[in-house]
Design a protein around this nucleic acid. Structure first.
Length: 559
RNA sequence: UGGGGAAUCGUCUAGCGGCAGGACUGCGGACUCUGACUCCGCCAACCAAGGUUCGAAUCCUUGUUCCCCAGCCA
């Protein structure tokens, strides 16, 4: 970004800097550990920027690791999409792409080690029984009747689990810690469960037992030599178990888990489960629907990686459970696009204008700068002619001085072109305005008129050359700032029915109609737009990335 | 009613015993061939009550409010 500054400090950077200075830490080694069960979203971007950003800033490394211990929910599609998204953000894991499933054999050995040390046991309780034995938030649990099996029996049973001798759900391997712990995560948590008949995307049918996250994560971190294992707040009370595992197996590395608050963004949801629901229930058109806060959606919407990184930088990293205003993201998007997007003109709601004193067949090439503040971005030709389109919102038959646009019997500047005066309004039988008769001042191309000041400037497209285009106007997906925090209503009830408005008959400059998907432009006075992948030669389609700030709307609405 | 966390402008965030600062938003103005951008200015906060101290957002005590946890999910 143009004004990008250094990453502000935060409590994690302070910990790292202290440990680096004191020598406990030699090389910062982090990891980003998504489960491949959905697409990455803006909340993941925060974590990606944190983990990869820390590695970059302290000359360390960051691994990409798929936390794939639950094959039931996972899929290769997500593995591919996640890698694409992380790369798109601009981060690189070199040869450090790992899968938790890489460690299945080692994990098994560590489980055996725990059993031999009398610190894990095979439990025959059903899921419901385990729940009963676990106690509650306020009551202690009670020991499983299988808690004191001999090491030999546990070894034999665990081996049997691995060999497929037992049915799903009939047994688990559990850590032997303390059923009376006030921390429920320490009440003999499950280490392994039995899952027959699922094909793991990496290991196929090699295993019928799968390790739990709480067991897998600390070990994966330790095996990879991670020293800062950053995760979100809800794992805070799993940390004692994380440390317990590391302390009770033979690994030399003891990664440190540090928790930070997950991102909440107003007027959207940032939860894989809920995003999946939006896709499955066809509230949106897929994971890359431009209304989605997924990286795929943001990318299709026209949001750049630079904007997302800057957003991530601005929101910071703390343990405060807060919600970011959408305006904060939009500000980053506008800042980036203002600098990088070429300017074009598009008329959303066309009103025909005939320049009565302009020759019938004449077309006049005008050079229009691509960026008002950056000459190196060049200029493009646009054609002025006798018939043009302007936006209906830019004309009024009568208006006060505040309305700096075209008014009957008044003048206005056509952007990059001449000053015109509206002489006559043509209406149909219903009284609707269908055409404006105007005259142009030939002396005003690139020059201000003599003796009078023309304040307003409006955009336009020549009728002869303009190309019909579809514009997709996106608005917030929900009409409640925290749709999933409402205890009265289900979040889907807060979906904004008007989150997509399709403008079928906009008219754009011919030059922008053939741009490739993904390119962003500013349609002057309207907003930033991005060529959608649905675009075809005959029918260009644009997504509105974000509107321009609109102080006129504020003035108008206040009246 | 157990355990783990968090409380600073509207929002996000800095502060680490010595002038409460920044960003976003909002408001006012300047500039303008984009009612954009840019520039200038303004509004706006330490959860509460005690205590320690020359001095407290910061340390101590007691409260209050909010978030998370009872998956063989992550």
């Amino acid at each position: 970004m143009s004004n990008e500054s250094n990453t502000p400090t935060n409590f994690i950077r302070q910990i790292i800097e202290k440990e680096l200075a004191e020598g406990q830490t030699k090389i910062v080694h982090t990891r980003f550990p998504p489960e491949p069960n959905g697409y990455l979203h803006i909340g993941h971007a925060k974590s990606i920027c944190l983990n990869f950003g820390l590695a970059e800033d302290y000359n360390g490394v960051c691994n990409l690791r798929f936390d794939d211990t639950n094959p039931h929910k996972e899929d290769q599609e997500y593995i591919d999409a996640i890698q694409e998204d992380v790369r798109w953000l601009g981060f690189d894991w070199d040869d450090r792409l790992f899968y938790s499933s890489d460690y299945f054999p080692k994990l098994y050995e560590f489980a055996v080690e725990l059993i031999k040390a009398g610190k894990a046991y095979v439990c025959d309780l059903s899921a419901e029984e385990v729940r009963e034995y676990r106690g509650s938030l306020t009551e202690k649990g009670k020991d499983s009747p299988h808690r004191n099996r001999s090491v030999e029996e546990n070894l034999e049973l665990f081996e049997g689990m691995k060999e497929g001798m037992f049915e799903d759900g009939s047994r688990t391997l559990r850590a032997k810690i303390d059923m009376g712990s006030p921390n429920i995560n320490m009440r003999d948590p499950a280490l392994y469960r039995i899952r027959h008949g699922v094909v793991h995307h990496q290991t196929g049918d090699a295993w019928c037992i799968y390790p739990m996250y709480d067991f897998t994560h600390p070990i994966s971190d330790a095996l990879e030599g991670i020293n800062y294992s950053l995760c979100t707040l809800e794992f805070e009370d799993h940390r004692p178990f994380y440390d317990w595992i590391i302390d009770n197996i033979s690994v030399s590395c003891h990664p440190r888990q540090i928790e930070f608050s997950r991102l909440n963004l107003e007027y959207t949801v940032v939860s894989k489960r809920k995003l999946t629901q939006l896709v499955d229930e066809k509230v949106v058109n897929g994971w890359d629907d431009p209304r989605m806060p997924t990286l795929a959606g943001l990318r299709r919407r026209g949001v750049s990686p630079a904007s997302i990184k800057e957003f991530s930088r601005r929101i910071g990293v703390t343990k405060v459970d807060g919600t970011i205003e959408m305006g904060a993201l939009e500000s980053c998007i506008r800042e980036d696009l203002d600098r990088s997007a070429q300017r074009r003109m598009a008329v959303l709601n066309p009103l025909k204008v005939v320049i009565t004193n302009y020759p019938e067949e004449q077309l006049e090439a005008i050079s229009a700068p691509n960026h008002p503040k950056n000459e190196s971005m060049g200029a493009r030709p646009i054609n002025f002619g006798r018939e043009l389109y302007i936006d209906r919102d830019d004309f009024r038959e009568s208006a006060n001085k505040k309305f700096k646009r075209l008014v009957l019997d008044k003048e206005v500047r056509l952007r990059n072109s001449y000053v015109i005066r509206c002489d006559e309004v043509i209406k149909d039988e219903a009284g609707e305005i269908i055409e404006l008769r105007c005259s142009y001042d030939p002396e005003t191309l690139g020059a201000n008129p003599e003796g009078r000041k023309v304040k307003g400037v409006i955009h336009w497209v020549s009728a002869k050359e303009g190309v019909k285009a579809e514009l997709r106007l996106y608005d917030r997906l929900f009409n409640h700032p925290t749709p999933d925090a409402d205890k009265e209503k289900h979040f889907l009830e807060h979906v904004n029915e008007a989150s997509l408005t399709v403008i079928e008959n906009a008219v754009v400059e011919p030059l922008v109609a053939t741009e490739e998907a993904g390119k962003s432009f500013q349609f002057e006075r309207e907003g930033y737009y991005c060529v959608d992948k649905d675009s075809t030669v005959g029918k260009p389609v644009f997504n509105r990335v974000v509107t321009l700030r609109d102080s006129w709307a504020k003035i108008e609405n206040s009246n």
